[in-house]
Design a protein around this nucleic acid. Structure first.
Lengths: 107, 107
DNA sequence: ATGCTTTATCGTAATATTGCGATATATAAA
DNA sequence: TTTATATATCGCAATATTACGATAAAGCAT
């Protein structure tokens, strides 16, 4: 009652759902767009850029790191975040596989 | 405090996040895969197939209908759900645009 | 060493999501 | 008409997510 019944579904369904879910928040979309649009990796100008408190941003960054779509490199007392190119492409392709393998038949 | 601060983000960021979020649940992934894998549109064998109660499935179907990725056609006292092909492709392409337009620069 | 800056984590409040039993509604079947 | 079947909706309980202030940790500047 209330929890997502993860055990009912198989690993690939759960993994796919996690990818979608992590991307399913406007702040995280905005963070990815901001990091992606900088020529160099940018640290927490993200906090300045997006209108959310520093702990909130930090939490969102943690979620994004959880699926490996960004990486943080420590530079002194700052952290430089950047898109993890390989994983980025991998996630895109996992999602595309889902779209291509599902929804072909029907009606 | 607690709500997603939708106002902070622009329409396209919010819309993108909604698409991802709706797809971000294993039951909804499983439902889409099930509907997609039937040669004909299938009604609520979905309830039988997935191990969740009928009201729960109904709720998930409602979410999926909300983004237009499935359509339900009433047939007597049954409802026949199917993938909305056009919208399916459109969503795939919206997501791909996001992936292609973001994360190109960096590092 | 002391204070400043940057980032992460903890704890908590507000809200949202998930899941389901009970119930409503509508068609099919008897 | 009565009963069964299929689906949607309501209302609630359990849990998860979002957001943030306070605080910790760690490096930089003085």
């Amino acid at each position: 009652m209330g929890v997502t019944k993860t055990q009912i579904f198989d690993t690939s369904q759960n993994e796919l759902a996690v990818l979608f879910k992590v991307l399913g928040h406007p702040a995280r979309i905005a963070i990815l767009q901001y990091i992606g649009n900088q020529n160099a990796c940018i640290c927490n100008d993200i906090v300045e850029e997006i209108g959310l408190a520093q702990p909130t941003i930090s939490q969102h960054l943690k979620e994004l790191k959880r699926i490996g779509i960004i990486e943080g490199e420590i530079e002194g007392n700052k952290v430089c975040y950047c898109i993890a190119q390989e994983r980025w492409k991998e996630i895109q392709s996992v999602l595309n596989n889902f779209f291509n393998e599902t929804g072909i038949h029907c009606c």
